[in-house]
Nucleic acid binder design. Structure first.
Length: 670
DNA sequence: TAGAGATTAGTTTTT
DNA sequence: CTAATCTCTA
């Protein structure tokens, strides 16, 4: 059926009647196996809509759908591919919450809050102006949710003041969300789990919808996701979990390799198939990657091999500082491109933290080299888009106070702080939303005439649109909404020309995109509104088929997972950066090593590593030591440029190696 | 309400 | 020490 699968891949595709774990090394044709398996299942007569494939990103989901479609097209079954339930964990969760909103005590028009809203809610609850603390609490709440810990449980388990404060914030936060008829990202997993925990009928209903469940990047699942997955497959549904323990890099987000370890325990008939042949990288690159990851404890033994050529040694280059590094990389890139007549899009520059991108951007721009930053600020994070989305959310759900606050403030309409405070008091006293508070008798008494008419006009606009939202096409509604708000006029009157034009343009793009989306999928305004919250990346750009502009890719190591490039520059390989200082202190060096491993295995033909001898921080320059990971590579496959390590640095590298060993021992002892 | 000046924080990854 | 955010003033 499918052309050129190797033996292990073929076996993974054909094993379709029981639980299966595919350990897919980097570049081993993982996506190929998943898509071939979907096609295989369809051909075997499994109803496409009962095939559930789960990925972590929208991008991965899209790629899979396209590739499955290509495979099935050869069998005149392309439309079967569009019937397959292929979605991210979060959008699957959203479908469940949507379908079961009643049982969960939510109206059908619930909102999905964005991280900004969450921050202000938590900030208010924690009564601290300190952003760092607010974010720490917010992070803690998310951890609790991912681990399926309720506010009450968190509170009773809290042993110190900090934990108690966070737990109390969590409690208030949960109440606030309920009052707003809103859910956050984590709830999209947590609420379905709660439902399936308590409702046997719902469990059966959802299990009946799954004839086969496939999970991609299984090593990145957190406890909540694993529980959801287990409910979906029940006791008898065959599944295919595809993952690689060596590429688990989301531990900080609550993902745990326990889920991988638990699989053989929870499913004794589990079949395990390893994909070890790599189709991506040269021998030298793989030897280095294998040597590096060999320093990690193994869950499953696995060693990548390839039939590809030996390739060139990996080049390791020190630079004086980050600017020198960027300049060096850009020069090498230009020279390499000239010599090999390659395209800019054949190159990627990968780094640990987003902030490291800046110097490289500057250096690239200085040479007029086109580049693309993956994971930069997305379209949906821009203020003007958030403003519009606030209106959409408010139309869908007038209990959504955060949306009310944002929408009423832009454009300015004579409703200010004082009015909002009064409304807030009324809302609290009456236990209603801010929107509803406008219609309470107190509001009529305390507010001024002009304020009242402004509020009335605002509410009439929202209500009018809401009434039409059920039956009119989203496109017309959106146009009327924009006219009603007068957003474009407000932009032109308050901003300078250039800024106004950019923002109007991005608003227009957004509205246009949304209308097309609504038309194409026949979605209502409400569904569109809930969908927006899930789309965090701008990859939905329908810019023709041309595989994008020819541009160098700048990306964090995290965002680069799943991608591949002929030529890769891995930069900033210093102690404190990779491995990151915090991770070292927390004893998480293994995950940092996997991050490095992910970086190495992105490269197909050439790989260049670099680090800085010093880096400016807090004004002065700070000396940096090369990352311990460089010393862990296959030294025969490296070529050091510039001066070799000084005696001092060699000692330091050795010491850091010893420290690692000690930390490892401590970890095992614990 | 916008712009200039002051102040303060800077420690990682994101669905 | 720099850069971004906040605050105060015109």
């Amino acid at each position: 059926m499918t052309p050129s699968l190797n033996a292990a891949q073929r076996e993974a595709v054909r094993h379709d009647c029981g639980p299966l774990l595919v350990l897919a090394g980097a570049g081993s044709g993982k996506t190929r196996v998943i898509t071939a398996k979907i096609a295989h299942l369809v051909e075997r007569g499994v109803a496409p809509e009962r095939i559930v494939a789960i990925t972590f990103t929208n991008k991965a989901a899209r790629e899979m759908r396209e590739r499955a479609q290509d495979l099935l097209r050869r069998h005149d079954a392309a439309d079967a591919a569009s019937a397959v339930r292929l979605s991210t964990f979060h959008s699957l969760g959203l479908s469940i919450v949507r379908a079961e909103h009643r049982a969960l005590g939510l109206r059908s028009s619930f909102s999905i809050l964005d991280p900004g809203d969450l921050e202000s809610i938590v900030g208010e609850l924690a009564a601290s102006a300190d952003r760092g603390r607010t974010r720490a609490i917010q992070w803690k709440i998310s951890q609790w949710k991912n681990a399926l810990v309720s506010p009450e449980e968190a509170l009773s388990a809290a042993s110190d003041d900090a934990a108690r404060i966070a737990a109390r914030a969590y409690l208030g936060y949960a109440e606030a969300l309920r009052a707003y008829q809103a859910v956050d990202f984590d709830d999209l997993i947590g609420l379905p789990v709660t439902l399936l925990d308590n409702d046997g009928a719902a469990r059966e209903r959802w299990q009946a919808r799954c004839a086969h469940v496939l999970v991609d990047e299984y090593q990145d699942t957190n406890p909540a996701q694993y529980r959801l997955f287990r409910y979906l497959v029940g006791a008898a549904t065959p599944f295919t979990a595809v993952g690689d323990d060596d590429q688990a890099i989301y531990g900080w987000r609550g993902a745990t390799l326990d889920n991988l370890a638990a699989l053989p325990r929870d499913y004794p008939q589990l079949r395990v198939i390893k994909l070890e042949q790599n189709y991506r990288s040269t021998v030298r690159i793989l030897r280095c990657a294998n040597a590096l990851i060999g320093n990690n404890p193994k869950l499953f033994d696995k060693r990548l091999w390839t039939e590809l050529s030996h390739g060139d040694p990996l080049r390791v280059t020190p630079a004086a500082d980050d600017e020198a590094e960027a300049e060096m990389v850009v020069h090498r890139l230009l020279a390499h491109r000239f010599e090999h007549r390659s395209r800019f899009s054949d190159y990627a520059i990968l780094y640990r933290g987003n902030h490291q991108a800046r110097v490289f951007e500057t250096a690239l721009r200085a040479q007029s080299i086109p580049y693309e930053i993956s994971g930069g600020t997305s379209l949906f994070e821009r203020t003007e888009i958030k403003d519009i989305v606030a209106y959409l959310r408010l139309i869908a759900n007038d209990d959504d106070d955060p949306a009310f606050l944002r929408a009423i403030a832009v454009p300015k309409r004579g409703v200010g702080q004082a009015t909002l405070r009064q409304l807030g008091e009324i809302a609290t006293a009456r236990k209603v939303s801010l929107f509803a508070a406008v219609f309470e008798p107190e509001a009529a008494g305390t507010l001024g005439a002009r304020t009242k008419s402004a509020l009335a006009e605002f509410c009439a606009l929202i209500n009018g649109l809401r009434h039409r939202a059920g039956h009119e096409p989203a496109g017309r509604l959106l146009d009327d909404m924009m006219r009603g708000i007068g957003y474009a006029d407000w932009l032109t009157s308050t901003l300078d020309r250039k800024d106004a034009i950019t923002r109007t343009q991005s608003v227009d793009d957004f509205i246009g995109w949304l209308s097309r989306k609504g038309e194409a999928d026949g979605r209502s305004l409400l569904e569109l509104t809930q969908m927006i919250a899930l789309i965090t990346m701008l990859e939905g750009r329908e810019s023709g088929e041309g595989d994008g502009p020819d541009a160098v890719c700048l990306s964090t190591l995290h965002a680069a997972k799943g991608l591949e490039f002929p030529h890769v520059f891995l930069v900033g390989l210093e102690e404190g950066i990779l491995p990151h200082r915090e991770a070292v202190e927390a004893g998480n060096v293994d995950e940092e090593r996997r991050l490095m491993y992910v970086g190495l295995t992105r490269a197909q033909r050439s790989l260049q590593l670099s680090y800085c001898r010093s880096r400016k921080r807090a004004g002065g320059k700070v000396d940096c030591a090369p990352s311990r990971f460089i010393a862990e590579l296959a030294q025969d496959d490296l070529r050091h440029s510039g001066e070799p390590l000084s005696a001092d640095e060699a000692t330091r590298a050795k010491n850091s190696g010893n420290a690692r060993l000690a930390a490892l021992k401590a970890l095992v002892a614990r």
